[in-house]
């Protein structure tokens, strides 16, 4: 299970991404070791979502290299699928399949992509539903659950695929304030269990308590990265300081 030569699990070298004439990512260099917990923050439009969406090829990077667990991410469908097997994603708008029950949501990809049997898929599904603390909702439909519950189901759905890496794209931004805690709790548990994760979020409390590294992005570039203590108490760049002052004063 150890990477050869102790290579980082995720490597991004010189990654650029354009949307037409607009450059969303400028020369991104990022290495993530196995078991590291990264929080990415920054103003809207800074490219944070774009960056993690490039990791599982929901966006295509224009140049540079992205290497996941030793495999380079290219146009080839085989490479893309190999990466997606190992990378789980949780979306801001949950994206649960509305026409399936909760447990079916968790079983579908297991059966189709990992070719797991129906019985085994259900077992795994119930296991992870337990882990996110809502096993009793198994036979309900997504619309019958609260936002916080839906997002926890979304996390469980990604976990059922047994990924090596979990990506979170602003997982609590669409939630009512009283439901943010239950989702962050699940994410914290996951982090404690050693899951490698990259989390785009505005939840600075989470960053302080869980992250190994906090990364600040602005206008497509990585401006600063540091451990949480240094990042929040002694930020180096002016832009970082400005951002922190804006979001921490309310």
């Amino acid at each position: 299970m150890n990477d050869e030569n102790n290579q980082p699990l995720i490597q991004m070298h010189g990654v650029n991404k354009f949307f037409g004439a607009f450059q969303a990512l400028k020369n991104i260099n990022l290495d993530v070791r196995r078991g590291e917990r990264i929080v990415v923050c920054g103003p809207s439009g800074s490219g944070k979502s774009t960056m993690i969406r490039c990791i599982n090829r929901l966006e295509e990077h224009n140049n540079g290299h992205i290497i996941i667990d030793g495999k380079e991410l290219t146009d080839k469908v085989k490479d893309i699928n190999a990466v997606r097997r190992e990378v789980g994603m949780v979306f801001q708008s949950f994206n649960l399949f509305p026409h399936m029950t909760i447990v079916k949501n968790l079983m579908l990809a297991q059966q189709l992509v990992r070719k797991v049997s129906k019985v085994e898929a259900r077992e795994t599904a119930m296991l992870y539903l337990q882990r996110v603390k809502i096993p009793e909702q198994a036979d309900k439909y997504p619309i019958q659950l609260s936002g916080g519950q839906q997002q926890r189901v979304a996390i469980a759905r990604a976990l059922c695929m047994k990924p090596e890496i979990m990506l979170f794209d602003e997982p609590t931004s669409a939630l009512d304030p009283e439901m943010i805690h239950e989702v962050l709790e699940v994410m914290t548990d996951l982090a404690r269990d050693g899951m490698t994760m990259i989390c785009v979020t505005h939840e600075m409390g989470f960053a302080r308590s869980v992250a190994d590294r906090v990364i600040f992005m602005d206008a497509g570039e990585i401006i600063e990265e540091a451990d949480p203590k240094t990042f929040f108490n002694a930020p180096k760049s002016e832009r970082t300081k400005k951002f922190l002052s804006q979001i921490l004063t309310h």
Binding site: L58, R84, R85, N95, R114
Partner: peptide
């Protein structure tokens, strides 16, 4: 996108 992310 969720389907893609799950590898479908």
């Amino acid at each position: 996108e969720a389907g893609s992310a799950l590898g479908m």
